[in-house]
Design a protein around this nucleic acid. Structure first.
Lengths: 105, 105
DNA sequence: TTATTATTTCGTATATTTGCGAAATAACGA
DNA sequence: TCGTTATTTCGCAAATATACGAAATAATAA
């Protein structure tokens, strides 16, 4: 019995991006950041600007922001007394490309 | 305090598709089905034809197939003694369109 | 009838995700 | 110094996902 190959890098990468987008709160956040006003050249928004439009608690929103940050799709910039969240343009472009390629199959 | 709106249909739909693709095994399955030989007008493959190329047990593969079926992305056609799995073309086209639209934002 | 083949379902264990409120942090203004 | 504001981290509970082997199913072959 030949042993089985592991998942390809590409499969792992696609799954990782999909996972980051697999919760409606995170889809909401991405849409919001992609469509909010520009600030220092990026689309930005604070957690406080989102909280009234999304049906979850502040701490839960914070957790989803953290996950998107961990996945590299967004980044946070401290601008006291708030934290402005922006799309991580470079990584988002790459993620889009990866999804595009998968879809085009 | 105004109460919060729920997630939009679109956000729920995007998250649902992303969730279906959020595990490398399910990405593997979709890729395999999208690229396998044609059979009765569709790209098809049996679970037995995949099992040696994917690092999970048969029962686990079966579960992932079930999830993709539940999400509507694939369908199974009995062709004894095997079951041929195919992409559900209509739903897959729709799913692609939804992801496209999300990405293009 | 019994074995074989292909695959799923069941039972169960473990891990991960999601959610919340309370407490913590950190800068600023009174 | 003591609130105020904006936000995160902590601690925990509940739900969901992932995984596996064993048993079940269902058609056919011997």
């Amino acid at each position: 019995m030949a042993d089985k190959p592991s998942f390809s890098e590409s499969q792992l990468e696609i799954a990782q991006i999909a996972k980051a987008l697999s919760h409606p709160a995170r889809v909401f956040i991405m849409e919001r950041l992609l469509n909010s006003n520009f600030c220092s050249g990026k689309s930005c928004c604070t957690s406080g600007e989102m909280i009234n439009d999304i049906p979850i608690a502040r701490s839960t929103l914070s957790q989803h922001l953290k996950e998107l940050k961990l996945a590299g799709l967004i980044q946070g910039e401290i601008e006291l007394p708030t934290i402005k969240y922006c799309v991580n343009t470079e990584n988002w472009e790459r993620a889009k490309q990866i999804l595009e390629n998968f879809i085009k199959q």
